[in-house]
Design a protein around this nucleic acid. Structure first.
Lengths: 247, 247
DNA sequence: CGGTTCGTTATGTCTATACAATATCGCGAC
DNA sequence: GTCGCGATATTGTATAGACATAACGAACCG
C-alpha cells in the first residue's frame, strides 16, 4: 500500500503494530509493549495509544488482558467480508443489460417447509414469489422469495411485476439481522429449464433470512447457474479502515 | 436486546443510535444530532460522543461531513462476515472424527494454469499437493494445493503426509492478503470418485489465494460435495459484538 | 455580476488527568 | 507445600480543554 497519506499518530501506531504482526516479527502469543511504553515510544498520551489499540483488539488481531498486557492473538480463523450485491447492480456492473420477470406470485398460508425457512413459530399468511433475473437476455438467477405478511402487511398490495422484491424490501423494510447460507446443489428439472441449463449442471445457491428484532421478514433463495457467478471476497488486513458490519 | 448490562456510556450511545437507524426512525440521509447536542443530551463530554460515533461511521452506518454534520448512510450492499474454518476444526466441531490423507505430492515447475492461479509473474518451482479430508470415515473435501517455493522454500522439506498443508502454512507463514472465491461446479469423474459421489453431483468449490506483501504464497482449491457443507454467515448489526475480518 | 477571502461551524485528533475494574503476583497463614 | 488474600500493575472509561481541518456562506472587491 502506498499510503503516502495523512498519517495521524493514531494511524501510525496501528500501522506499525499490525505490520509487525503480519510480517511475523511479533508471532501469535507475543506480548506487545504496554500502553505506557508505547506512549513513551511515540511521545504521546496513553489515550492516544489506547484509541489506536482498541480497534485492533476489537478486530481480533490483539487480545488484551488487564494486569497482564496486550498479546498477539493466535486463532487464525479465516474470516472474510463478502459483499452480496444487488443483482441488478451486479449485472449492470458487468456491462450487461439487466432484465427482470415475475414468474408467479401467490398469497397463502405458509406450508410446513416455509414455516421453517422463515423461522416462523406457526403457519401464517405469506407472499410467495418466483422471479427470474436476466443478464443480457440470458437467465442469470432464479429467485424464490417468501415474505411474511404478519411483519410486512404492505407487501400484499404490491404486485412485484416490475420491481424485484429485493429492491422493494430494501427500500421499505429495515432489518436488523440476516443469516446467509451458501451451498451448491443440483436443481429440479423444471428449475433447470427456467435457467436454461442442463439438469445435471451444478448451481450456486444463496439463501438469506432477515429479521427485524424478533419479527421474521423474508426468506430468499437465489439460484445461480454454476458458471454464471462467483462470489468473491477479498481481505486485506490493512491497518486503516477495518471493514466491519457495525459497532 | 436483553443484554443485561455493562452499559458504558459509549455503548449506550452507540446502541441508541444504531437502534434508531435500524428501526427506521432515522431514515437514510437523516442528519443526526450534532456531537454538541448529544453531549448535552447524554451529559457527557464531546470526546465520549466522538468515540461512540467514530466506529459507527467506520462501519458504514453513518457518514460524517465536516461543517455539515453526521448523516445516516444508505446501506445498499449486503456485507456479511463469513468464517471459513479450518477443516479439521469444522469436522470435529460436528462431533465426527477427522481424517486426513495425502494423495499425491509433487515438486515441479508451475504450468501456465498454475502460474495464473498463484498469480506468479513467471513459472517457478512449486509444490503441488492433493489431499483428502475425511469426516467419520467418509470423504469430506478434496484439497488441491499449490505452494510457491520461491516465497516458501521450507515447504520443499515437508512431506505433508500427516499434517494438512493448511495447518502447516498457518503456523509457518504469515500472510497479509487473501482472496476467496466461492462457486459451484460439476467435477471430473476422477474427482467424483475420490469424493465418493455421483459424477453429476454439484460441488461447492472454495478457492483461496494468499499473499505476503507482493509475494505469492499459496493457492488452494477445496471441493466439497454439495450435500456435505454449507457456508453460513450471520450478520447482526447490533451494537454488541462486532464480528470482523482479521488475520 | 463573478470571483475571492474570510469567518463560522462542525468534525478530527490529541493531551493530561482521574478513577474504576480486574487479573496476576507474591506474601503470609495454616 | 498450598491455600487465600491483599497489593499492584495494566487496561477500560471518562473528562475538559486545545488546536487542526474542512466546508459552507456571506461579505467584499474587481
Amino acid at each position: 500500500m502506498s499510503d503516502a497519506k495523512a498519517a495521524t499518530l493514531n494511524t501510525r501506531i496501528r500501522a506499525d503494530i499490525s505490520e509487525r504482526i503480519l510480517s511475523g516479527a511479533w508471532p501469535p502469543g507475543h506480548r506487545i509493549p504496554f500502553e505506557h511504553e508505547l506512549m513513551v515510544q511515540y511521545g504521546c498520551s496513553r489515550m492516544t495509544v489506547n484509541k489506536a489499540l482498541a480497534p485492533l483488539a476489537e478486530s481480533g488481531l490483539l487480545v488484551r488482558r488487564k494486569r497482564a498486557g496486550t498479546f498477539v492473538s493466535r486463532p487464525r480463523i479465516h474470516s472474510v467480508v463478502l459483499d452480496i450485491p444487488d443483482i441488478a447492480a451486479e449485472v449492470s456492473g458487468r456491462g450487461e443489460t439487466y432484465g427482470y420477470d415475475l414468474l408467479s406470485r401467490k398469497v397463502r398460508q405458509a406450508t410446513r417447509r416455509e414455516v421453517e425457512e422463515l423461522d416462523l413459530s406457526a403457519p401464517g399468511p405469506i407472499v410467495v414469489l418466483r422471479c427470474l433475473h436476466r443478464a443480457g437476455g440470458r437467465p442469470f438467477a432464479l429467485e424464490e422469495r417468501l415474505i411474511n405478511l404478519e411483519s410486512v402487511p404492505e407487501a400484499q398490495a404490491v404486485d412485484f411485476a416490475r420491481t424485484a422484491p429485493g429492491s422493494w424490501l430494501l427500500g421499505h423494510v429495515p432489518w436488523t439481522e440476516a443469516e446467509h447460507r451458501i451451498s451448491a446443489a443440483n436443481v429440479e428439472r423444471a428449475t433447470a429449464q427456467v435457467l436454461g441449463i442442463e439438469a445435471t449442471a451444478a448451481c450456486l445457491v444463496l439463501q438469506r433470512r432477515t429479521w427485524r428484532g424478533t419479527d421474521k421478514i423474508t426468506h430468499v433463495r437465489l439460484i445461480f447457474p454454476g458458471d454464471a457467478y462467483d462470489l468473491v471476497a477479498r481481505f486485506a488486513p490493512s491497518p486503516g479502515a477495518p471493514p466491519r458490519p457495525t459497532a
